[in-house]
Nucleic acid binder design. Sequence first.
DNA 1: AACACAACGCAACAGAGTTGCATTTAAATT
DNA 2: AATTTAAATGCAACTCTGTTGCGTTGTGTT
Lengths: 138, 138
Amino acid sequence: MKGVEEILQQHSLKNTKLRKAVLSVLMRSDKGLSHQDLSRSLEVDFDRVTLFRTLHVFEESGILHKIMDPHGIAKYAYTAKPVTGKHCHAHFICLECGQVFCLDEEFPLEEVKVPKGFSKKTIDVQIKGYCNKCAAQS
Amino acid sequence: MKGVEEILQQHSLKNTKLRKAVLSVLMRSDKGLSHQDLSRSLEVDFDRVTLFRTLHVFEESGILHKIMDPHGIAKYAYTAKPVTGKHCHAHFICLECGQVFCLDEEFPLEEVKVPKGFSKKTIDVQIKGYCNKCAAQS
DNA sequence: AACACAACGCAACAGAGTTGCATTTAAATT
DNA sequence: AATTTAAATGCAACTCTGTTGCGTTGTGTT
């Protein structure tokens, strides 16, 4: 597992307290975390807006990927393996609490045809349902 | 293709102007439409909140399915075929403009394992990239 | 040490979606 | 056709995620 500072350097991103903290938390998480989730678990001081911008930068650099939960809230997850054409991520998304779980399983996906003039970048598989806690309550 | 009023009746939903109009528009669309999209194309008078509630009701009834676009905006699409375990929807989502296109292609998907206690309901395949218009501009 | 530009903090804003409650209406019942 | 009732609607006020502009701070480089 690569170090946080190494990753930042590889993407020509400046090494700041918040960035290190955010990456560190996300690399240890098996779930996608929202801006609010991160706000709560980060121990450093930071501005709301800066965190939003940090997440954008990480997403654009390909360090994180974004998954929208059913309530329209962005969840961010660390991208260990870069996405190639041959496999794709799979996430379990809870329709009740909105939690996004990264599934270990990867899908070998056959060729997907997209309409003319469209360019495809990534393929996500989303399994939706109820997580253990929410399934137990209903 | 079933009639709008027939569909409402089958789901024990009252037959109102707005509901008929919304369903009618969505059945003719090959793209997912947002609340705002619908507001613009509907010709009947209605309240913002009522449209939100109408979309919720349709979603819960399984008449529509919801796809979140990259900007966190909900897009609704008519569900012609009910989702079984054997195939699943596929959507193309434009990272730039956020448009959601329903792809004809359906994916025969092998068994997906979910963690213990989790219940799966639907599987969505999301192909993300740039649509013809946005790809041309960049 | 000095410099340039990226990253940050603050304030104000935009827009999607929600909640509570009073009013209206669809459709079942008489 | 009139009555009735629960569902659907309209309105007002609100919450919260995410954005924009701009002046200030800090990182990394020369």
